[in-house]
Write a protein that binds this DNA or RNA. Structure first.
Length: 376
RNA sequence: GCGAUUGUGGUAUAACGGUUAUUACGUCUGGUUGUGGUCCGGGAAACGAGGGUUCGACUCCCUUCUUUCGCC
């Protein structure tokens, strides 16, 4: 059984539809994962995820290991059972938390030192420990511990991050293989390598080439959404795609605006995730078929229309802008749920539509008709 | 009626005889991309009224109105 199979290829672009096989089951690509850092997409229940057909989510292994801890999750049968979520559970390693001044302390070649924000104690995470955590959480797809450089860092510093990322990827892969040696292919947790290197083609190339040699189940492109332009971002995506074999799934980490998702799909990206739809929703930013709606603006105070008249989600079928605006301004949980549901639904539907257009050969035209509303 | 007390953006407050009067919430507005979290910017908006002292008054004095309390 192959981990990843391509089912359809777009004739004009690199867009494609595939099937990713995990121990939990199959999932059609491309797909977008809501971010469920602590085991829930904030304000969104597992039933909500099922209803919007979010068939994969990503949680954070590092954060979950701090609370509630891997012991509880393991005893509850793993994260999927704990949540009663039938879809695919991805976990992120915690490498991304290096951008968080609140918990990141420092890193050396051996691993990363974090401060546990709950207890204040220092915790040193090595690639091996990180793999152990993700195996105990029992997600279906794990991420390597990577070293994520910030956009403004010097090239020298980004180069050091890349070297650490490569070194750690090797250690993750070896430990992960060793721990799953006796497990059949169908029951294995998958492991993705993460390509770093900022906007520097030579560093991204170096990283992608080295990770390719290690033969991961899939490849993530990390370190975007941090200040670079969309042009810079997709130049690197194209470069990584040219290096990684076609039969490997590609995951563009952290990316979740409608236009970037479509730009990614066009270039053959298979997986996306972002806190954008939920975080933005809670702060009054709503995706619609006519672009972003800023619900806090006063002009919506008496607006009886749905968030998006072209949306068929339960929120748009039942509630007015005026009501959701009121709830959000009052910081009511219900408002956050309705807004978050709509935004996540919007992206799930956007990708369903994109896939239909890939099958029909009209993807490029479809993309153009959507992104004109989402230009910066 | 008598005595005391109070008056600063929508609300709650700060300071000072000397440029554009503080802060918070609210309000308007921009941001938000592998989530330590209900976040981060920017704007509009006030000295109760009238007179006096002074080079200069939101600040000191007087009158009036106002708030609150006590007494008859």
């Amino acid at each position: 059984m192959q981990t990843f199979t391509i089912k359809h290829k777009d004739k004009k672009t690199s867009a494609r539809i595939g099937i990713l096989n995990t121990k939990k089951g199959k999932i059609e690509t491309p797909f977008f994962m809501p971010v469920a850092t602590k085991g829930t997409a904030k304000y969104i229940s597992t039933e909500d995820l099922k209803q919007m057909q979010a068939n994969a989510i990503i949680s954070n292994a590092l954060i979950l290991s701090l609370r509630p801890g891997t012991k509880l999750i393991k005893k509850m049968g793993g994260l999927g059972k704990f949540m009663n979520y039938p879809g695919i559970n991805f976990t992120d390693s915690g490498g991304f938390q290096m951008y968080s001044k609140q918990i990141y302390l420092k890193a050396d070649n051996k691993g990363v030192l974090f401060r546990n924000p709950i207890s204040g104690e220092k915790i040193f995470i090595t690639p091996e420990k990180d793999m152990q955590i993700q195996l105990e959480i029992n997600s279906d797809v794990a991420m390597c511990l990577d070293s994520m450089p910030l956009y403004e860092e010097s090239k020298k510093s980004i180069k050091q991050s890349v070297e650490k990322t490569i070194m750690w990827a090797k250690r993750c892969k070896e430990y992960h293989n060793k721990k799953q040696k006796k497990i059949s292919q169908e029951k294995r947790q998958l492991l993705f390598g993460i390509i770093q290197g900022g906007i520097h083609p030579d560093l991204r190339t170096q990283c992608a080439e080295k990770l390719k040699e290690m033969n991961f189940d899939g490849y993530s492109i990390g370190g975007f959404g941090l200040g670079e332009t969309i042009k810079e971002e997709f130049k690197i995506v194209e470069l990584c795609k040219s290096i990684i074999p076609k039969n490997k799934p590609i995951y563009l980490m952290g990316i979740g605006t409608p236009n970037e998702i479509l730009e990614g799909i066009e270039r053959g990206v298979d997986i996306f995730d972002s806190r954008m739809p939920t975080q933005n929703a809670r702060r009054g930013g709503l995706f619609t078929s006519k672009g972003k709606l800023k619900l806090y603006n006063k002009k919506y105070e008496f607006d009886k229309k749905p968030l998006d008249k072209n949306c068929d989600c339960f929120v748009c079928k039942n509630y007015t802008r005026a009501y959701i605006r009121h709830l959000l301004l009052q910081k009511e949980g219900t408002g956050r749920r309705l807004a978050s549901f709509h935004n996540l639904y919007y992206l799930q539907r956007l990708i369903r539509q994109a896939k239909q257009h890939i099958k029909k050969g009209t993807f490029a035209k479809f993309k153009k008709s959507v992104i004109k509303y989402y230009k910066k």
